[in-house]
Simulated scan of single mutants.
Amino acid sequence: MPELTTQELAALAEQLDASEARIRAAVGTAASPLAAPMQREARDDADLAEEEVVQRQADAMLEHYRTELADIRAARERMKAGQYGTCTDCSEAIPYSRLQAYPTAKRCADCQRGHERLFARDRE
Rank of each mutant, 00 (worst) to 15 (best):
L48A: 09
E63H: 13
P37F: 05
A11I: 07
D110E: 11
R123E: 09
A120P: 04
R78E: 13
R98K: 03
R123K: 05
L16M: 08
E20V: 06
R123P: 00
A26R: 06
R73E: 13
E8F: 01
L4A: 02
E3N: 04
T86G: 11
A60D: 11
A18N: 07
A120W: 01
A93C: 09
T67S: 11
G85L: 02
E116T: 02
A75V: 00
A26P: 01
Q55V: 03
R123S: 09
E20C: 11
C111Y: 01
C90M: 08
E8V: 00
R22F: 09
G85N: 02
Y96S: 03
G28Y: 06
A10S: 08
A70I: 08
H64M: 14
E20M: 09
P2L: 13
E20R: 13
L69Q: 11
V54C: 10
L9S: 01
L48E: 15
L99M: 01
T88E: 15
E68Y: 06
A75H: 02
R24E: 08
M38R: 08
A21Y: 01
Q39N: 08
Q7C: 03
V54F: 12
T104M: 05
L99C: 00
I72Q: 08
T88D: 11
H64Y: 07
P95W: 06
R22L: 10
E63D: 13
A105H: 02
P33S: 05
E77Q: 15
C108K: 04
V54K: 14
M79C: 00
T88G: 09
G114W: 04
A21P: 03
E20S: 08
E52T: 09
P2G: 12
P103Y: 03
R66V: 05
Y102W: 04
R43T: 07
E14D: 11
H64W: 12
R40L: 10
R22G: 01
L16K: 00
D17H: 12
A109W: 10
D17Q: 11
A81M: 12
R76M: 08
Q15W: 06
T67L: 14
A31K: 07
C90T: 12
R24I: 06
R123G: 02
Y65K: 07
S32W: 02
R56E: 15
C108V: 07
Y102K: 12
S91R: 14
L69F: 09
E51N: 08
T29I: 05
F119L: 14
E124W: 14
